Each structure stands twice: as structure tokens, then as C-alpha cells.
Simulated assay, not measured.
Amino acid sequence: MRTPRIYVAGHTGMVGSAIVRRLTALGRGTIVTRTRDELDLTDQAAVRAFFAAEVIDEVYLAAARVGGIHANATFPADFVYDNLMIEANVIRAAHDFDVERLLFLGSSCIYPKFAAQPITEETLLSGPLEPSNAAYAIAKIAGISLCESLRTQFGRDYRAVMPTNLYGTGDRYHPMYSHVVPGLIRRFHEARERGDLEVVVWGTGAPRREFLHVDDLAAASVFVMERPRAEFEEVVGDHLVYVNVGSGTDIPIRELAELIAKVVGFHGFVSFDPSMPDGTPRKLLDISRLARLGWTPTIRLDEGIRRTYAEYQAELALTGAAAPSLTGGAA
């Protein structure tokens, strides 16, 4: 039997690299990758030429333009355009070149801002989105719709996972455009190094957020991809192609900041700036379908943050005074 060839789109990003690590550890087939310089996924002709030249059996679509609240609010046109183009090009080319299995990596921001908690998969399109990342969310919803439409029209078994807020290995620590966990790790670390007496955190600290280590997401992604179609449809429902992936618990941003300050060793005062946006009040995913499929997360938040900070320190030691992973952009 021929060894399956697995294309991981976005393998240099946090999610894609975690999926590569997981597939490698499990010994799953031959992994095919391309850097952004080698293959521009927003270029339809280039993507089709890639699929025509390569014999691909499975696709993990982890490539995306990603960022935190500030990045989403500052570059909404870039977020919606780049993500729409990446998804449309890769998913359609996978279908046209007869790729049997594809897993699309979505985001929990697809759900309405004021969705009932915990958020079930059926909540999609039941209310208005959080405005600060609506452009990104709309692009991700379009990706889900394309997978659903290919199943309806052509019988494709293309699936998607909707992860909660991620952190961990390979994250970006940009001072303005990072997600909340790496952003706080960097700020508390630098404050400790300078001997600051106070760190001011955006917002009121009241919103609750769920966090998942990226290695848990990678494990869940491979697990979902490999479930037999009948099993997946029996649990998830034959009308859905996507399933939530999260930790099942959430934490107020205030407590998260205090936990990170403790891990980093910052002993000053942690205050909050209510003039800055909070975003969605609460976003906790219902992960009961994934649990019924047979998968649950294994990395506790405190353990994951300690591991992530140790990796940040190790990278700082290699790069000197400059903080690592400052560039933002596509994952």
C-alpha cells in the first residue's frame, strides 16, 4: 500500500507546526509542506499547479492570516481577503484534484458575540458577531460553508474543527498584534526585567476566556481527521461538518493575568484599563460532541503556561535582548 501524502498548509505557523509534530510523532505518512515564499496560497493558479504536480491524499488547512484584537481591528480588509482566498483556493483545488480527506482549521470567533454559554455548534449564524474580529470570522464561516457545500453537492468528506483561544509553542509575541497569552507573557517578563512596579492590562479584566494549548489542538485535529465517516456523522450529525475543540473550562482575564504574572515572577501591581476594549464578554465552547467521539484535552492551563514561558525564555536566550517572533502575518 502506498504511503499517504499529507499536505499541511501553514506548517510554519503555530497550529500547522503543531500538527506536523503530531503527525511525525505518530508516523503518519509523508508530510508535504511549502513555505509562503514557495507557494502563495492566495494565488489560485499557483495553488492549482501545486495540487496538479503533487499527489496529495490528505490536507490539513492550517494556513491563515491571524492576530489579536488590535490586529483584527486595524487590518480587517487584509484579514477577510487573505483568508477567503486561502480557503477558497486550497479547498476547491483539493476537491478538483480528488483529495479524499481535508480538515479545515476554523475559530471559535465564528459564533455570535452574545451566544448562550457554553456555545454549541448549532449556534452558528444565530446572532451578530463580535465587531472587533468580524472580518476574520466571516472568512472562517465561508470556509465551513465551502466544506459543507462540497459534501452536499459532491459527497466530499471534508471536515472542520473550531478551536477556542490558543497558546503555546510557536506563538507570536508582537507587542501590539499578539494574542492575549503571549502578549501578557512578554509584558510581564519585560516589566520584571525592568523592575517595573505596575503592569496595566487592557480592558476591565472581567471577560472570561477559554484557552487550549496548541499541542492539544493538534492531537484533536488528527483524531477528528482519522475518525471513520460513519462515526463522525453519527456523533457530530449528518448536517454538520465541524466540531468544537476546547478545554471545557474558562477563566476571567484578571485571573489569567495574575496567573501569568506569578509564572513569570512579576511581583508588582496588576491593574486594568477599562477604556480599552474587552471584546466578547464570555466565550466557552461546548465540547461534548468531541468528548463523545472519544477525545479530551490533557494539558492544564497552569502547566501549559509554565511550558510556554520556558520556551519563550529559551528563545530569548538564543536571540539575545530582542523578543522572539515579532512579525505577525499568516500562520
Rank of each mutant, 00 (worst) to 15 (best):
G237P: 03
R28Q: 06
G237S: 04
L259A: 09
A71Q: 14
T24H: 13
T42R: 14
E226A: 08
G170C: 10
V161T: 06
G127Q: 10
F114N: 15
G13R: 13
F188D: 07
A53D: 04
T249D: 10
A52T: 15
P207F: 01
V180L: 15
G203M: 08
A116P: 08
G68H: 09
T120W: 05
V222P: 00
T74S: 13
V90F: 00
V245Q: 13
L285Q: 07
F97N: 05
I138W: 08
G328I: 13
P277Y: 03
P207M: 04
A322N: 05
A115F: 01
M1T: 13
H267G: 10
T249W: 12
R186N: 00
E226G: 01
T120M: 11
G170Q: 15
A88P: 01
R2L: 05
I19K: 05
S178R: 14
T319F: 05
V200G: 06
E233T: 12
A160H: 02
A53F: 02
P182L: 10
L125M: 14
Y81N: 14
P274H: 07
M176Y: 09
Y242H: 15
A71F: 14
I185S: 08
R187V: 09
A116H: 11
L23M: 01
F51G: 02
E148I: 02
A291M: 04
M162P: 02
A73L: 09
A52V: 08
P175H: 03
R28L: 00
V236C: 06
M276P: 04
E198H: 12
I110D: 04
G16C: 09
W295D: 11
A115G: 11
D216Q: 15
A62K: 07
P207W: 06
L124T: 12
S108P: 09
T24W: 06
R229T: 13
A291N: 10
L293I: 03
T319R: 15
G248D: 06
I110F: 02
K262E: 09
V55N: 15
